[in-house]
Design a protein around this nucleic acid. Structure first.
Length: 313
DNA sequence: CATCCGTGGTA
DNA sequence: TTACCAAGGAT
């Protein structure tokens, strides 16, 4: 049974895998780490162009570590959650200064890096170093929930039972490095969840293991809970995002009064800075919220005070 | 452990 | 148009 699943999914992956640059056998561990962090909560299609820019500009961790953190944030562009750029810069600094510029090649070593949690540590250990590691991301959790547990969606929070299941399903290490059975299984299940066993309207007709699926066998029961949406309108995140857009557009400190100005961004005039300021003002944040958001950005290290203005760090 | 942290495409 | 959701992590 398990053997059949392994063979079917791994063979499907060999035929159907998307040709992504970080899956190239020549891709460096650093390139794989960058891709994994960028892919945290961000779709592949938006990551692709930014990842290529990063690899061209910073081919090694030391290249990124040599620049101010703000450059990482600027080059992050609109991928979202810019603190990830900050942590990637911090990770590059640790790698350059404490690991001789070479990535740790164990899960535990990777886990100690800023911005690297359980998922990313396992993913890099597996995909960059060929280690046997149970990769558990949202795609894999969903495939396991349906295929094995017969449920429409995984629970809101990762459970110990899910970790156990992922470990049980993981093939033994066969010493084949990046081409090992466990690596291909991890990649295959993740890909299946990403392109076939999707959260909304799964493409069961295209699924290689539809006949083995416990969820289908159970008559596709609906989710037992309702996912709670992420608040956005009127949130601090919305304002922080608008402020960060201004800072990314500016190469010198933006005077503080411009952030409050409800009227014309006179000093900015035309151009991307003025446009970003206009978008911020359009949100109409009250002064208290705006101040709190800016203070939060500074506290997070995403923004810095300089010459009476605000800049990227 | 629940909450916070960006952004844009899609149903 | 609104709401969901995408290779999570830190606190």
């Amino acid at each position: 049974m398990l053997e059949g699943l392994h063979t079917t999914i791994v063979e499907w992956f060999a035929d159907e895998a998307r040709n992504l640059p970080w899956r190239d056998p020549e891709c460096s561990p650093w390139g794989i780490l960058v891709s994994e962090v960028m892919l945290q909560q961000t779709p592949v299609v938006r990551v692709l162009p930014v990842w290529r820019e990063w690899m061209e500009r910073w081919p090694q961790p030391a290249d990124l570590a040599a620049e101010p953190a703000g450059e990482a944030v600027r080059a992050w562009g609109r991928l979202g959650y810019p603190r990830r750029a900050l942590r990637l810069h911090a990770a590059a600094t640790v790698i350059a200064h404490e690991h001789g510029g070479v990535l740790p090649d164990t899960e535990a070593g990777l886990l100690s890096l800023p911005g690297v949690g359980g998922y990313t540590a396992a993913a890099v250990a597996a995909f960059a170093f060929g280690r046997r590691a149970a990769v558990v991301d949202t795609n894999i959790r969903r495939v396991h929930a349906r295929l094995v547990r017969g449920e429409a969606l995984p629970s809101p929070a990762l459970t110990a039972a899910e970790r156990r299941l992922a470990e049980e399903l993981l093939p033994d290490d066969d010493g084949a490095g990046r081409l090992s059975a466990s690596v291909r299984w991890n990649a295959g299940v993740m890909e299946l969840g990403a392109v076939v066993c999707t959260a909304r309207s799964p493409k069961c007709a295209a699924c290689p293991v539809a006949r083995d699926c416990a969820w289908r066998a159970a008559g596709e029961p609906p989710p037992s809970y309702v996912p709670k949406g992420q608040a956005w309108h009127g949130s601090d995140r919305q304002v922080r995002g608008a402020v960060m857009a201004v800072l990314r557009a500016a190469s010198r400190p933006v005077p503080r009064p411009l952030f409050d100005a409800p009227a014309l961004p006179a000093a900015g005039g035309e151009g991307p800075i003025a446009a970003a300021l206009t978008r911020l003002h359009a949100l109409g944040p009250d002064p208290e919220r705006l101040e709190r958001c800016i203070a939060g950005l500074v506290a997070d290290g995403l923004a810095a005070e300089r010459d009476g203005g605000l800049v990227l760090p």
